[in-house]
Amino acid sequence: MSPRGVVIPDLRERLFAAAERVVAREGAAGLTSRAVTAEADCGKGVLHTHFAGLDEFVAELVLDRFAHSARQAEALDEKVGRATVAENLQSVVLALLGALPPAVVGLALTRPAAALRTREGFQAGAPAFDAIQHAFAAYLKAEQRAGRIAADADTATIALALVGTVHHLLMTRVPGRGEEPETVIGRLLAVLLGGSPPAAP
């Protein structure tokens, strides 16, 4: 255990990652402040020293993961003209699903006070699905200008369909059951980008 009074580097991320492991292993019911600090190998009071309580902690975890996901989506602009449009989008969508595991998203749904704090964070401007959708649309427009997407493709609707599918998978996916996300997203992109020109050799 970390010695009392010693500053722990990246404490927030350490606690967030510990909470994700606890929920993945024990479900939302197993998430307590003591379970998180024990998993993070920290003192029992550390979580309450840095957060007003478990509900604020859960809200901050969800907001942090959405912000991280939005940054991943925004990084698509660095992939314009590289690989294929479908490959670039699929890699980011799968990364989003990895950064927002269903167990974590479900946390806020099972704790009304955490859900309220999360909504307040989004209303205050924290990145959410709209930021991810905007990043998808901007990337698709750039690829369209580059001639890698059909000129008449509805990039805004493609972005909306992708974000809607991500939202659906986050809310309903049960790991190990049903089709793998790679299969679902690959099939969706084949339909959405069916008229796109092939990648440059």
Rank of each mutant, 00 (worst) to 15 (best):
M1F: 04
M1W: 12
S2I: 04
S2V: 09
R4Q: 11
V7L: 10
I8V: 14
I8T: 15
E13A: 10
F16Q: 07
A17H: 08
R21H: 13
R21L: 11
V22K: 08
V22L: 11
V23D: 12
R25I: 05
R25G: 01
G27T: 09
A28W: 06
A29P: 03
G30D: 01
L31R: 01
S33Y: 08
S33D: 14
A35N: 12
A35G: 15
V36I: 15
T37E: 11
T37Y: 11
E39K: 07
E39M: 12
A40R: 07
A40K: 13
D41T: 10
G43N: 11
K44C: 00
K44G: 02
V46F: 00
T49A: 07
F51T: 03
A52L: 06
E56P: 02
L61A: 08
L61C: 06
V62I: 12
L63M: 03
D64P: 00
S69W: 05
A70N: 13
A70W: 11
R71Q: 15
A75T: 10
L76G: 00
L76D: 01
E78N: 02
E78K: 11
V80A: 08
G81S: 03
A83L: 02
A83C: 02
T84P: 01
T84K: 01
L89G: 05
Q90M: 06
S91Q: 15
V92G: 04
V92D: 05
G98H: 06
G98N: 08
L100H: 03
L100K: 12
P101C: 04
P102A: 05
P102L: 03
V105W: 01
G106E: 00
A108Q: 14
L109Y: 07
R111N: 15
P112G: 06
A115C: 08
A115H: 09
R117Q: 12
T118C: 06
T118I: 00
R119L: 13
E120S: 09
G121E: 05
G121Q: 03
G125M: 07
P127F: 06
D130M: 11
D130T: 04
I132F: 05
Q133L: 05
Q133A: 08
H134V: 09
H134C: 03
F136S: 08
A138H: 07
L140V: 10
A142K: 15
Q144I: 02
R145C: 10
A146E: 11
R148N: 06
I149E: 02
A151L: 10
A151T: 14
A153R: 15
A153G: 06
D154C: 05
I158R: 06
A159L: 12
A159T: 14
L160Q: 14
L162H: 12
V163K: 13
T165W: 00
H168S: 14
L170S: 14
R173W: 09
V174D: 12
V174W: 00
G176F: 05
G176V: 06
E179S: 13
E180V: 04
P181G: 11
E182Y: 00
T183H: 07
V184H: 00
I185W: 01
G186I: 03
R187V: 01
L189I: 06
V191K: 07
L193Q: 02
G194S: 07
S196P: 02
A200G: 12
